[in-house]
Amino acid sequence: MRTRRVWSTAALFVGALVFLFPFYYMVVGSLQKKPDTSILGALPLGGLTFENYTAIDSRVDLLRSLANSAIFTGGVLLGTVVFGVLAGYALARLHFRGRGTLFAVMLLVQIVPFQLLIIPIYVLVVRTYGLADSYLGMMAPFFINSTAVFVFRQFFVQLPEDLFSAAALDGAGEMRILWSVALPLVRPAILTALLLTFIGPWNEFLWPFLVTKDQSLQPLAVTLANYISNIAGRATNPYGAILAGAVVLAAPAVALFIAFQKRFTAAELSSGVKG
């Protein structure tokens, strides 16, 4: 039994290194003056430089793109935490007309591929609402994350009923119960849901790519993709600059994930998904 476990652990380590290698190579490549694709070139041996970072920054406005990504993501997080928590609470705890329908539609949203909707949403947001090249247009389709609403609902459902009846007996209104009784208890769940929500808009490419033609509004995923497909051919060290941009795009999500990795355990999520 013990030797078997050693073998499976060893296999897992080898797999983990394979999974991580592209990340390592991203960083090494971004620091090389000239792209070295030989086998030894994968080792960080001398000739390392930050030039690629200044190169990508001179081609695309890195800070501006990062700020756009932050605004786009921040707006979605705000919409999700405010309106998503309210909706999740209502779906879990309040009896009102239309609750069943709303719950069913929330589940349906998770199954219908977003890409089916890009044409009509493009028609609506860009043509009808006139929101092309605006943060609002960028955020609109993601503004309240339905998966997060579902997670919020599951956590509120699990809270013991006695808690609520006790608070109601004390004369607390629904708003008061939500704010001072329910919310403090589900705070860790909210953090988990927000982390899951974060990676959506931060990493999203297709929608902001369609809706923003104005470079000064594009989030980093879009500016980097445009750099890859249009400009890279003319740069002196295109891969170096592309990889430097990739590191900047990947770093915030990876750092947040590592900092809060405990929240991504199976137990944490399954307690949210079991209803």
Binding site: F19, F23, W202, F205, A221, I258, T265
Partner: peptide
């Protein structure tokens, strides 16, 4: 081990495509 296997999932496709283009 967990972090190693999850980390591609939390990273932007655009950033990962960049490395694969290189590889």
């Amino acid at each position: 081990l967990r972090v190693s296997y999850y980390v591609p999932y939390v990273t932007a496709s655009v950033a990962l495509v960049a490395v694969w283009l290189f590889l």
